[in-house]
Computed example of a mutant assay.
Amino acid sequence: MLDSIVEWVVSLMELLGAPGVGIAILLENLFPPIPSEVVLPLAGFTVTAGDLSFWSTFLWATAGSVLGAWLLYWVGQAIGADRLRKIADWMWLVEPGDVDKALGWFDKYGSASVFFGRLIPGVRSLISIPAGIDGMNFLKFTAWTAGGSALWNALLIGLGVWLGARYDVVAQYIDQYSTVVYIILALAVVAVIVYLVRRSVKRRAEHD
């Protein structure tokens, strides 16, 4: 799978140059199996060969990141808070008020969430959806997304330039980082489920 992705990215860069990197990153936002931790260091390695320039690669990658985030933001807007409340009302353990609490939290910390979310594998794309649901100011969303994406892209392209032919080392370390992130997210999900179950049991006991 990974080898075929690398081959596809190489062919895309050979055909289109730096815009090919932007297209790959756009698709990475929409289809996470295309890993930026492989695409961007590979692009950095290609920069060392003189086939791409660092700045054009960086700018196209960031443009692809922002465009992909826009698409997911609009998905969030299409879902909307009202529809999400109806879904919450239908679901077991969750209440419409939980949606309002989550949106209130996002109103308070949304900017930081969007920025730092762009630096976390598995969250990079998904963070755009709650921003759209919450109706976060589009210009603010774009600015924070571009800032976080620019930092991530510059780091990974720069590592690819620095490591050269050993660019694949980046993916190995980010896989370890991703594993820690996924474990933390899984524990957070378990904690939320436990909280919701305990709340449901307590309210049922009070009702009885």
Rank of each mutant, 00 (worst) to 15 (best):
L93D: 01
V94M: 01
V94A: 07
V94I: 14
E95Y: 03
E95W: 04
P96H: 04
G97K: 04
G97F: 00
G97Y: 03
V99I: 14
V99W: 00
D100Q: 07
D100G: 05
K101A: 10
K101L: 13
K101G: 01
A102T: 10
A102W: 04
L103T: 02
G104T: 05
G104N: 06
W105T: 06
W105Y: 14
F106D: 04
F106G: 06
F106K: 08
D107T: 12
D107I: 05
D107H: 12
D107E: 14
D107M: 05
K108S: 13
Y109A: 09
Y109T: 05
Y109I: 01
Y109D: 09
Y109G: 03
S111N: 14
S111I: 13
S111D: 12
A112M: 12
A112G: 13
A112K: 06
A112W: 12
A112N: 14
S113P: 08
S113H: 00
S113Q: 08
S113N: 11
S113A: 15
S113M: 13
V114K: 07
V114L: 10
V114M: 12
F115G: 09
F115A: 13
G117N: 05
G117P: 03
G117Y: 00
G117E: 02
L119Y: 03
L119G: 00
I120N: 08
I120F: 09
P121T: 13
P121G: 11
P121R: 03
P121C: 09
G122M: 06
G122N: 08
G122I: 06
V123Y: 01
V123F: 09
R124K: 08
R124W: 10
R124M: 04
S125T: 13
S125W: 03
L126P: 14
L126I: 15
S128P: 02
S128L: 11
I129G: 07
I129M: 05
I129K: 11
I129P: 09
P130E: 02
P130F: 04
P130V: 01
P130C: 07
G132C: 08
I133Y: 05
I133H: 04
I133F: 02
I133Q: 02
I133W: 02
I133D: 00
I133G: 05
D134M: 14
D134N: 15
D134T: 14
G135A: 02
G135V: 04
M136W: 05
M136S: 10
M136H: 02
M136G: 02
M136T: 11
N137Q: 14
N137L: 13
N137H: 13
N137A: 14
N137D: 15
N137E: 11
N137I: 10
F138Q: 15
F138M: 12
F138A: 15
F138D: 12
F138V: 14
L139K: 15
L139A: 15
K140I: 15
K140C: 10
K140D: 11
K140G: 09
F141H: 02
F141C: 04
T142P: 08
T142A: 12
A143G: 10
A143L: 13
A143N: 03
A143W: 01
